[in-house]
């Protein structure tokens, strides 16, 4: 199991488009991946689950991955968040 703390920095946060792109990124991994915000968590492969977290600019979240390719999966997600998910940070 691997966890990463992330600070969301792009303007729109995790909106429909950003979440859809995130799913395209994680869908290839075998590991189970979750995104946590405060006490709530969502499966990173479920768009509605991700959207229901209401992740916005400036929020702190945790990426949690578990499985054979957990390291790469968490790394790719971290990069995605840090790059601003297609927007300027």
């Amino acid at each position: 199991m691997i966890t990463k703390d992330i600070l969301v920095k792009n303007e729109s946060g995790l909106g429909s488009k950003q979440a859809a792109m995130l799913i395209q990124k994680v869908s290839g991994y075998k590991s189970a991946i979750w995104i946590e915000k405060e006490e709530r968590k969502a499966n990173a492969k479920s768009l509605l689950g991700l959207l229901s977290l209401g992740i916005a600019n400036g929020m702190k979240i945790v990426i949690r991955a578990e499985g054979e390719d957990e390291e790469q999966a968490a790394q790719e997600l971290e990069n995605y968040f840090n790059s601003g998910m297609g927007e300027a940070v």
Binding site: E11, G13, G15, G54
Partner: peptide, 17 residues
Amino acid sequence: GYIKAIESSGNEYAMQS
């Protein structure tokens, strides 16, 4: 149910979805 969860976050950007 999902929509309620977003509403409870109270975030304007998240509301867009």
